[in-house]
């Protein structure tokens, strides 16, 4: 739930990211998953939901190593995973821990594939993850991308479409308050949670009563130093 009276969330939720993540693990025949998890509310929410969804599958979490953000020496927790027989490692971390962790995993002689949820695309050293797959929000609609490129000369980065949608959703909610020319925040918030079938940059959007907008996740891959969508 989007906590706070006037808050709403337009970010691909863990439940959707994990659904796509697990489907990809199954497609690749992976049954033993290792996790390196930075301690943060976002990562904890992803792991809690992942554990729940994995109960319905034959995929087992064989090791789950946690660390504090700001950590730079992962060598001992990496050594602990040696006998785990993990077939792939999920790195739930962001820059710079993500890059240091990936570097130290490889320096430890571990060649097991690594994957992530969101992390790789936000990395400042994307080349470290060349050829690795991961899960992230799906691409914006072609129309949004075309207009973005025409206006800025660049491809939209992660979150650009979310930002665009958020602004337009607030505009739509404000316009939906018809009984006054000066709507209050409460009226706008109330109208916002009634929005359905909104044609946004991330597809058809619905705001649920908790203020959450579910957008799709997709499997992506770092190819030639750039993120590309593998499946929709």
């Amino acid at each position: 739930m989007a906590k706070g009276e006037y808050n709403f969330i337009h970010w691909t939720p863990p439940v959707e990211e994990n659904r796509v993540f697990i489907a990809e693990l199954q497609r690749r025949g992976i049954t033993k998953l290792g996790i390196f998890e930075g301690i943060a509310p976002g990562a904890a929410a992803v792991i809690a939901d992942l554990r729940e969804q994995l109960k319905e599958t034959d995929i087992e979490i064989v090791t789950d190593q946690m660390f504090n953000f700001g950590e730079t020496d992962f060598r001992s927790i990496i050594a602990k995973t040696k006998d785990s027989e993990a077939e792939t490692y999920l790195l739930l971390a962001f820059s710079p821990e993500l890059e240091i962790l990936a570097q130290q995993i490889r320096e430890a002689g571990i060649t097991t594939p690594i994957t992530s949820i969101e992390g790789f695309e936000l990395s400042e050293q994307v080349d470290l993850f060349e050829g690795e797959w991961y899960v992230n929000a799906a691409d914006p609609t072609g129309d949004f991308t075309d207009q973005f490129v025409a206006k800025t000369g660049k491809s939209p980065t992660l979150g650009a479409a979310n930002g665009y949608d958020i602004f337009n959703l607030i505009v739509a909610a404000t316009e939906n308050v018809t009984d006054t020319t000066k709507p209050t925040p409460k009226q706008i918030a109330s109208e916002l949670t009634k929005i359905t079938n909104f044609s946004g940059a991330l597809g058809n959007l619905n705001v649920d009563p908790d203020g959450i907008i579910v957008s799709n996740a997709a499997v992506r891959m770092i190819k030639d130093g750039k993120p590309v969508t593998v499946t929709e």
Partner: peptide, 15 residues
């Protein structure tokens, strides 16, 4: 990579 020698090495490096 054996865990005990690796832990000893990691400890020495951190030290």
């Amino acid at each position: 990579m054996d865990i005990l020698p690796q832990l000893i090495l990691n400890s020495i490096i951190a030290g």
